Computed example of a mutant assay.
Amino acid sequence: MKIRGKKYKVSRAKVDANKLYKLSDAVNLVKETSYTSFDGSVELHLTVKKEGLSVNVELPFPGGKKKVVEVASDKTIDKLKLGKIDFDVLLATPDMMPKLIPFAKLLGPKGLMPNPKTGTVIKDKSEAADKKSAKSVLIRTEKGFPIIHTTVGKVSQKDVELSKNIVAIIDALGKNMIIKGVISGTMGPSIKLEVSQLNADSQAKAQ
């Protein structure tokens, strides 16, 4: 059994484990129960009706570390031969895909293998500028399981920003696909979301 520290126990005591919270209340509670000395992340965990879901979502208020986006080139191939990965997203034009196939086992498990379904295969390099500046994140279920884990922002962000980011994800997945949801701060307690209210918030765009 995992032993929890005193700070966690104090935070956990503020959360009713049997209660389903409205989105706005849950976001507020995440901040109230955050006890890290750094600006923690706000995480969203969803159980959906089927596995294999994958969608790019543009977050209205992205926060945290800026992702490094690379367009595949011969220099990328040289780095991959050395097992070096220094990017968070890899884009590729169709002509580069055959060169990347030998590295599928390296890139695939990390979710970095370019794929038309995730919008990471681009027609030409001119399209890369839009992809690099986009606020989109890839939301997908875990392999073999109908669950999704993703970060929606930082604890320091405004409540409405975090709520709208969550709403954007709900809308992209389809509100009827969600069975249950939980949010939490880094190392903080889990806060259950009222799914019916999530859907209502989604329709209202968290306004």
Results as ranks from 00 to 15, higher is better:
148 I>A: 01
26 A>E: 02
177 M>E: 15
86 D>N: 11
123 K>A: 13
60 P>C: 05
37 S>V: 15
164 K>M: 04
204 A>W: 11
79 K>V: 03
81 K>W: 04
189 P>V: 12
106 L>G: 04
135 K>W: 04
199 N>K: 15
102 P>C: 06
160 V>K: 06
99 K>L: 11
80 L>G: 03
93 T>N: 04
29 L>G: 02
83 G>M: 09
176 N>M: 05
103 F>W: 09
34 S>R: 02
90 L>R: 10
189 P>T: 11
166 I>V: 02
62 P>D: 00
72 A>Q: 12
156 S>E: 01
75 K>C: 12
108 G>H: 07
192 K>D: 09
8 Y>Q: 14
42 V>I: 11
173 L>C: 03
93 T>G: 04
45 H>A: 13
201 D>M: 14
130 D>I: 08
179 I>T: 15
163 S>W: 01
51 E>T: 08
42 V>T: 04
146 P>H: 02
23 L>N: 03
3 I>Y: 15
91 L>Q: 00
127 E>H: 09
17 A>Y: 12
42 V>D: 04
64 G>I: 08
160 V>F: 00
129 A>K: 12
77 I>N: 12
207 Q>E: 13
14 K>Q: 12
43 E>C: 00
24 S>H: 10
118 T>Q: 13
52 G>T: 05
183 I>T: 00
51 E>M: 04
88 D>H: 03
98 P>V: 10
19 K>W: 12
178 I>S: 02
87 F>E: 08
148 I>L: 01
112 L>Q: 06
78 D>G: 12
207 Q>D: 14
14 K>I: 13
22 K>G: 09
197 Q>P: 13
144 G>H: 08
142 E>K: 03
8 Y>C: 14
128 A>F: 09
41 S>F: 11
29 L>W: 06
190 S>Y: 10
184 S>L: 10
88 D>G: 05
49 K>V: 11
125 K>A: 12
2 K>F: 15
124 D>F: 03
181 G>W: 06
206 A>D: 00
91 L>M: 08
108 G>A: 08
133 S>Q: 07
114 P>Q: 10
115 N>I: 05
198 L>Q: 10
4 R>D: 14
100 L>R: 01
56 N>L: 13
64 G>P: 05
65 K>S: 14
152 V>D: 00
131 K>A: 13
157 Q>I: 03
79 K>I: 03
102 P>F: 09
138 L>G: 00
188 G>Y: 00
168 A>I: 01
18 N>C: 05
96 M>Y: 07
79 K>M: 10
71 V>R: 04
153 G>W: 00
160 V>R: 04
100 L>A: 04
158 K>H: 11
88 D>L: 09
92 A>I: 11
96 M>R: 07
111 G>Q: 06
194 E>T: 01
85 I>F: 00
25 D>Q: 09
106 L>C: 08
143 K>H: 09
42 V>C: 03
185 G>C: 11
89 V>M: 01
55 V>E: 07
99 K>G: 04
141 T>S: 04
23 L>S: 05
95 D>G: 08
1 M>A: 12
82 L>T: 07
38 F>Q: 06
10 V>G: 10
116 P>T: 05
200 A>L: 15
181 G>I: 06
173 L>I: 08
15 V>E: 02
155 V>C: 00
206 A>K: 01
204 A>C: 06
78 D>M: 13
153 G>R: 01
37 S>P: 05
78 D>A: 15
151 T>A: 06
66 K>C: 05
187 M>L: 15
175 K>C: 12
118 T>H: 15
69 V>Y: 02
170 I>A: 11
